[in-house]
């Protein structure tokens, strides 16, 4: 019976069907299945499948996003029980993300947040027009491994450098890696401001984050 249930869980994520995945998570709880087992033997396999299919060009970004949503819906149902049991999902790392002060563009940053979250990172999204200081404060508060700073304008891009300086001033730089992104950001800019990495797209950002936390 559980084998069928796990298979359905996987399928619900592949289909990007968040109502179905939440419903299956409820079923798992009703049957007394360990939430971590439901995640790792069911839903995660769906995420992995979608990731593989994406890799070979058979599935696209919207498939990934919908799968991530379905996964999130299932985890939300399972979370209270995980807490009760004192267990938690393994987190690849903690990431603080935001679009830098003076800049209100968020779509690219949101995409990165979503993909990181779906890939197993704990993401703290500070939103847009984020003061430099706030990146550092949040990083200290949540003990972030990575701070991601997004900018879409050449005029706000310089704020990425400021964020790094603030992190430096607060003595956080040794333990916090900084990644930068946004349309005007290039590899040479990232190097120049002393960022630990940059990516041109969301999937690249996930690979970069994994590399930076050594996973």
């Amino acid at each position: 019976m559980s084998a069928d249930l796990f298979e359905s869980m996987k399928q619900s994520v592949i289909d990007g069907d968040e109502e179905r995945s939440a419903e299956l998570a409820q079923q798992a709880l009703a049957q007394g299945i360990d939430p971590l087992v439901a995640i790792n033997a069911g839903f995660v396999l769906g995420i992995n499948h979608v990731g593989e299919q994406f890799g070979v060009g058979e599935m696209f970004l919207p498939d990934l996003m919908l799968a991530a949503e379905a996964m999130k819906a299932a985890v939300a149902v399972l979370e209270p029980e995980m807490k009760r049991r004192g267990t938690q999902r393994e987190v690849l790392g903690r990431v603080v993300l935001g679009t830098v002060k003076g800049d209100i563009h968020e779509i690219g940053k949101n995409l990165v947040a979503m993909m990181l979250s779906a890939s197993g990172f704990e993401v703290h999204d500070l939103g847009v027009d984020v003061p430099f200081q706030k990146f550092a404060e949040k990083a200290r508060e949540v003990k972030a491994d990575i701070v991601g700073v997004s900018a879409l304008l050449t005029t706000t891009m310089t704020g990425q450098k400021t964020v790094i300086e603030v992190l430096d001033d607060m003595g956080l730089r040794p333990q916090v890696k900084v990644i930068v992104g946004g349309a005007p950001v290039t590899r040479s800019w990232a190097q120049e401001i002393g960022a630990d990495g940059y990516s041109e797209d969301a999937m690249g950002a996930v690979a970069l984050a994994k590399k930076l936390v050594g996973k």
Partner: peptide
């Protein structure tokens, strides 16, 4: 149209 693989313009 967005590039379906990268999300890029």
């Amino acid at each position: 149209a967005m590039d379906l693989r990268t999300g890029g313009y």
